[in-house]
Amino acid sequence: MESNNAEHTKIVEALNSRFASSIKEMGEPYGELTISVDSSNIKNIIAFLASEEMGFSYLTDLCGMHYDTTDELGVVYHIHNLYTNTRIRLKTRMPKAKPEIDSMVSLFRSANWQERETYDFYGIIFKGHPDLRRILNMDEMDYFPMRKEYALEDGTRTDKNDTMFGR
């Protein structure tokens, strides 16, 4: 991958030298360094990036995805090096049948609830998470509502004429 950003080039080189086999795709859409990686190796990659050498000590965001065309689930990480002001987006994919990925809680405490939220929404199992329970929805809920196949509405609404909106 070619980049005009010296920081990005440095990161890409460092990652390529260590984790070449885990990296699937790299890109820079809208100037944001985006790397798709193998979900089995994500913890090592992030641990390396979060080390003092690379300085990505801040987990900005962690969220789930459901790619319904390939029926895969994914987790997207945004990590940030505050001193060089560089952000990286790391994307992973995993089959919906076995949605497992390593937990980041040991690296970033902020990952704790974000992973719980992701589990709550998509049913992604974070291995090594200390307390993987539903967080926003009720414990009794028996599906993962953010997956594309589930409806948004709850169906108890009585004061609406659905035909107006093509449903």
Binding site: L136, N137, P145, Y150, A151, L152, E153, D154, T156, R157, T158, D159, K160
Partner: peptide, 17 residues
């Protein structure tokens, strides 16, 4: 009163329920 804009799986559609 009615759930308003949030016609979703998690919101009660009005407290009169």
């Amino acid at each position: 009163s009615s759930g308003g804009i949030f016609d979703t799986y998690s919101v009660l559609q009005g407290i009169d329920k």
